[in-house]
Write a protein that binds this DNA or RNA. Structure first.
Lengths: 188, 188
DNA sequence: CCCTCAAGTAAACGATTGTTGACTTGAACC
DNA sequence: GGTTCAAGTCAACAATCGTTTACTTGAGGG
């Protein structure tokens, strides 16, 4: 009798997930300090007090967002082979690979000042770059992989800022230069 | 404590400049929302009320920082020739080209949400990318120039985050890959 | 010397924010 | 159907931040 497609009005897991999703959008778009918990709660359609109940504090909500983004990034394909990387990254950046994909990279650029959150953030970034280096065929090229990661992150950031023509260009127009850049950075 | 290096203890232009410099550091490092005007005033060694007097508001102080960073970027050499660009950019990123150079790029990634500040920010970024494209010999390669700008910005950001080994690597180790990337994107 | 007005300070205000405690509601079990 | 306890709401708290107002200080001209 747990299979209830009709929405239950009271479901702790569901509202916790709603809060987490809303917080992910806000933290990613506005940053940590500029995000108001009341807005997050309004987006989720629940009361502000539930943030403290389910996530302890604002920092707890932020670290929960970081770990979720890290898990999703860890499960994502697309960086398995070096040849497929440019197209996959381009798809991520433009947002076609799911509406939540580019947000994760942006969130990992946000900082809250909290020590624990910072360690989670750096850990996720580190793991991502290591997998990228492994996809390049040489785990020793970690620095170059981080350069690709940095370039990708900056690209997402400037597109988000609305810098034209970068912000308005299509995915196809981005794949070519991206491939050139990745090859230039990761080539043997 | 009286530190009387300057003969005049009361100088409007001087304190205005002190406030601006302190604000540049805070806004660049912590972002707009996380920056407290009281900290800025303390860094400058003056009272908080002077911010409202000299810059109208926090937004006014932020836009003043943006325009100053834009002016300094506009006056900077190093992007005149394409060949000199990689070393110049690498020097900027590492910070050897003056302690204030990499901060400017980072500040241009910060957002306050204010409309006027956002236009200034985009204008500076646009102008910088245009000059970079012109340095490449082809003003039509604006998109590629913005890719270089995005990569540079992301690089500064991730180095600032402390991501190893990227954050700890020397300027010389950064120049090579940067040159390859810039040439791959901006060379005909 | 003192008078004046700008430079600077101190303190408080109003608004907002994260957080907490008491209260209310509803769904599952007997 | 009544009971129970988690789920959820409401309102208020304390802290903080940007801003304003009233006051104090000091450098320079007459």
């Amino acid at each position: 009798m747990r299979v209830e497609l009709s929405p239950r009005r009271r479901d702790a897991d569901r509202t916790r997930r709603l809060l987490l999703d809303a917080a992910l959008v806000r933290f990613t778009r506005d940053g940590y300090a500029a995000t108001r918990l009341r807005d997050v709660a309004d987006d989720a359609g629940v009361n502000v007090a539930l943030v403290s109940r389910y996530f302890e504090s604002k920092e707890g909500l932020f670290t929960a967002c970081l770990t979720k983004a890290g898990d999703e990034l860890r499960r994502s394909p697309g960086e398995a082979s070096l040849d497929a990387a440019p197209a996959a990254i381009a798809a991520q950046i433009v947002g076609r690979a799911g509406p939540q994909r580019p947000y994760q990279l942006l969130l990992l650029l946000r900082s809250s000042g909290d020590e624990r959150a910072e360690q989670i953030r750096l850990g996720v970034l580190r793991g991502y770059s290591e997998r990228l280096a492994a996809a390049a065929g040489d785990p020793g090229r970690l620095l170059q992989a981080q350069l690709v990661l940095a370039a990708t992150a900056g690209l997402v950031l400037l597109r988000r800022s609305g810098l034209q023509p970068l912000a308005g260009v299509s995915e196809e127009a981005l794949t070519g230069p991206l491939r050139d850049m990745i090859e230039a950075l990761l080539k043997p």
